[in-house]
Structure formats: C-alpha cells, structure tokens
Amino acid sequence: MEEKKRLRNRKIVVRDFFGDGDHLYEDQLGWTKREKREARSLVSKEIFEYEVVTVGLNLAFYYVDNDTFYGIHTESLPIEVKVLPRDTPDSPYINSQCKGDTHARGEVVFSCRDSKELWDGVKIDDKTLEEVLNRSLIITLN
C-alpha cells in the first residue's frame, strides 16, 4: 500500500518520455545517487567538478523546461556547450530522439578554454548551470 502511494505521488514531468506509459519523473532529474557517491558530495557544483572537470567526462543532458538536448564536450579546446541534434526526431519517444553524443555538431551556446569556467559561465535561458541540471535528465557521462 505504501509503495502504491509512493508511486502515485511521483510527479510526471514528461509523459511517455521513454516509451508508452514509461514517463520521465521529477525524481529522475539531476545527479543520480551514483554520481553523488562517486563525488562524495550532495553539492551539485562539487559533483560537476568531479565528473566533468577532474575525471574529464563529456556530459549530455535533456533540459525539460525547454525540451532541448545539450552536450558539454570536454575532449578538445575550446570546450563547447552545444545544442545536440536530434538524430531520430521522428521517434515518438523523446529519449530515443537523441543519442547524447557530445561529438555531434550543434549550435554552440558557450565555449571556454578552461573547464573551471563552465560552472559559473554557462547560462541557458538565463538559468545557471545548477538550475538547468536540476531540471535535466542526465543521459551521458563518458
């Protein structure tokens, strides 16, 4: 009964995001438990700095509030934050529309030569990177 109540109280942010009846829920947004454990932190900035700056991973995410896939590509200079193209835009499920490959070419919304500039420098729709990631599904860290 408690489990059913818990499931009923989950807030859907995008219906059928992964498939028919397979929704994207608010509790799936932002950093996962695994990233928090790896970074040994609950602080978004510290997790970002661990995964993207220290380990050096590329990051791709789907920002719910403007229905856009973004990628932060750290493999080369300048580091680019870009809109990722939808590889299969005709797919009925948003999750399947973009591979989350940050190598893909796309509109660059921010660039810098030092990953430490990313956290404070990136703004999407006047929102900070922290605000954006809190409202995003992280789809790639590699």
Binding site: T54, V55, G56, T74, E75, L77, I79, R113, S115
Partner: peptide
Amino acid sequence: TEDGSHSHNWFEVAPGIIGRKSYDKSNH
C-alpha cells in the same frame, strides 16, 4: 576533427581517481 573513430588514454588524475586529460589534443 573528431568526426571519426578515436581513442583516449585514462590514468590516475588524482589519488584514486581515474580520469582522462580532457581538452588535450594529444589524447584524441
């Protein structure tokens, strides 16, 4: 130009932490 297949090296970027030297052209 990064459109093709490629490889990266990974190593200990900090004690106990495996990572790669990001934005290092020699690591592409």
